[in-house]
Nucleic acid binder design. Structure first.
Lengths: 155, 155
DNA sequence: TCTCTGACTTTGTTTCTCGAAGCTAGCTTC
DNA sequence: GAAGCTAGCTTCGAGAAACAAAGTCAGAGA
């Protein structure tokens, strides 16, 4: 079965983009990874409308990517903030991959906006596709791509 | 300078999403990585409208992610197909990262739709964020994130 | 009581996407 | 040489999504 004959209904790229592929969603996650948690901080820093922000946060919480956690500041009533769940944190490689491509092709000539380094050794981190046995970075030409057990013909 | 005080104007995640973050674009690239090259094959397999497909292919070509290459089939006039450039191929980790998250959280219980393995050893490939010195997979808690040389205060 | 604030919700307008229909250039068939 | 076929778009009208701005709401402080 060739790719063009396969159904994309259960494609995991597609299903992932159904959850995080809408406009603004990945930018909200970028901010969440940088410690942003509150409605108004997201709104001001990411720069989207409040209606869309409320919708995206609701969807991300419904998907289990964010959780709402109550908090109370002195002199304010109880509110809730949005935090990444482990499921949400697992999207980190997606964001680092987007950032890495951007640094290469559309980056500021002065260098990166955020400097991400390994805490232990101080070297800048990178995203690679690797073989778990040999730990070498692979390119698309070094892999075989075949239909897997869930491959189904297009309807 | 804290993240919330930094401008996102030259954020490379944002700039990358400006090029590939529209609806359908990453799905078109998924198909391109699987060998799809022609207008009608994209349309039928990805399942988007022709007007949007024409728009997305134009934008991807303008961004240098795809190139149009003329070809001629027996009994047809010259047409052109869309192929990934090296710049486009460098988006591979983004797609593999999306796929990997999807396999973990929204995958088909039967297994992957596409089985991607290292050609040399046959092991399934994975995406990791790593330190280039030590080649160990890192989590968000194992890195430091600081403003880089291009960090600018929000306007 | 009266105002302030964070977190939304509502409203009216603009932009995007959809499906369907139309267009175009070269090739084949009659 | 007229007529039909096909891949690759473009155009069009309708519905969906996003925008900015205004409105709501609940508790805190003055």
């Amino acid at each position: 079965m060739k790719w063009l004959e396969m159904s994309t209904e259960n494609c995991t790229v597609q299903r992932t983009l159904d959850l995080v592929g809408e406009k603004w969603t990945l930018l909200l996650l970028r901010d969440a990874f940088n410690g942003v948690r509150r409605f108004d901080d997201f709104r001001r820093h990411v720069g989207l409308s409040e209606a869309v922000l409320a919708d995206r946060l609701r969807k991300l919480a419904a998907a289990g990517i964010l959780v709402t956690v109550p908090y109370q500041e002195r002199g304010s009533r109880t509110r809730h903030e949005y935090r990444l769940t482990p499921k949400g944190r697992d999207l980190w490689p997606v964001l680092v991959a987007l950032r890495q491509w951007g640094e290469t092709y559309v980056g500021d000539p002065e260098g990166p906006v955020l400097d991400i380094r390994h805490r232990d050794c101080g070297a800048p981190v990178r995203v690679v596709v690797e073989c778990p046995d040999e730990h070498t970075a692979l390119s698309p030409t070094e892999v075989t791509v075949l239909p897997g057990p869930a491959a189904r013909p297009a309807g």
